[in-house]
Design a protein around this nucleic acid. Structure first.
Lengths: 170, 170
DNA sequence: TTGACATAATTAGCCAGCTAACTATAATGT
DNA sequence: ACATTATAGTTAGCTGGCTAATTATGTCAA
């Protein structure tokens, strides 16, 4: 994933704002900072997972399965929850099944459907990765107070609302 | 890019925290919310750019060039600023050059190097896209006060510091 | 000066996303 | 009952990232 490493200076931002009157300088700066930190996190996560021979997409699938009480879901539900197509999910599951981390079981009631189950090997893989992952997460958030964490979440909620106001029909 | 659409419930988070004592529940929740909003933004940005026949990687290159006073840079500097490899940059520039948005000019002093220049067509493309982009950005941040925007940026700064504390040598 | 190393860009080949088309099965309306 | 439509999963083929190797040029120290 592309990682924004170079944020514009205040001077550059103002030059852009002069050419484009629609610009809201603090909105742009906040947006860019948000993208930068998120891409940094994603890149760091990739690096952490690669030590355990995992790729991010496959790892998120394992997490989603572990969230289920019966450790089971279906390809289309998993794809929906990760925001990827079912076709892509087929590929992720092929890889995971080949490594023995999940298994496909035919569904009893709907013969079109397949149940995906986290295997014991898959659970063991998660048990190996999660402590490392959670320790790193704790580390990178430890500079924030509880109230800052709450502030962050509510601010992000407002932004997410704002995104859904974008209208692509025109 | 993968888009996290499904955040864990408080109950699920606590179940994970019970299995993995390293878990810091509010750190995890904040992290996941941050990733979700950032991926939502990136997906929305893709949708906005596709209306103008642009892809995100190529668009960031145009932005970086416009930030320079002489509208010029080199492939390796651009790659560094976007956090991608020079090989990938070669491909982005091939596409941009083919569309006439940038041009390669051989560098005077170092014959290994190439200068990349934003063309007038490229500038015109930016002039078409930026007002739309900035308007959307203003829209999605308009629910935040100036102080919330400052809070956001300083909180993100703390997190970014925390990431660099991850040590992958062990 | 020249041998060793460093740097700029590209090329070749791999992998994970995507869309579109396909198969099989289920649900629905007349 | 059965034709139509919808849904679950897969396959095929495309694209844009990646790494590793290649070519050309520059730098530096013996």
């Amino acid at each position: 994933m592309l990682q924004l490493r170079d944020l514009p200076t205040q001077e550059v931002l103002e030059r852009f704002a002069q050419r484009y009157p629609e610009a809201d300088v603090t909105a742009i700066a906040s947006f860019l900072m948000l993208l930068r930190v998120a891409t940094d996190l994603s890149v760091a996560l990739d690096a952490c997972l690669s030590k355990h021979d995992l790729l991010q997409g496959r790892w998120w699938v394992l997490i989603l399965l572990m969230r289920e009480v019966d450790l089971t879901s279906t390809p289309s539900v998993l794809a929906e929850k990760l925001g990827i197509t079912r076709a892509t999910m087929t590929g992720l599951l092929d890889g995971l099944e080949q490594s023995g981390l999940v298994q496909r079981v035919s569904a009893p009631h709907d013969r079109r459907s397949v149940q995906i189950k986290l295997t014991e090997v898959g659970q063991a893989k998660l048990d190996a990765v999660m402590p490392d992952y959670y320790t790193r997460l704790r580390l990178c958030m430890q500079g924030l107070s509880e109230s800052q964490r709450n502030d962050l979440q509510s601010i992000l909620g407002v932004i997410d609302q704002g995104i859904s106001a974008w209208d692509f029909n025109q």
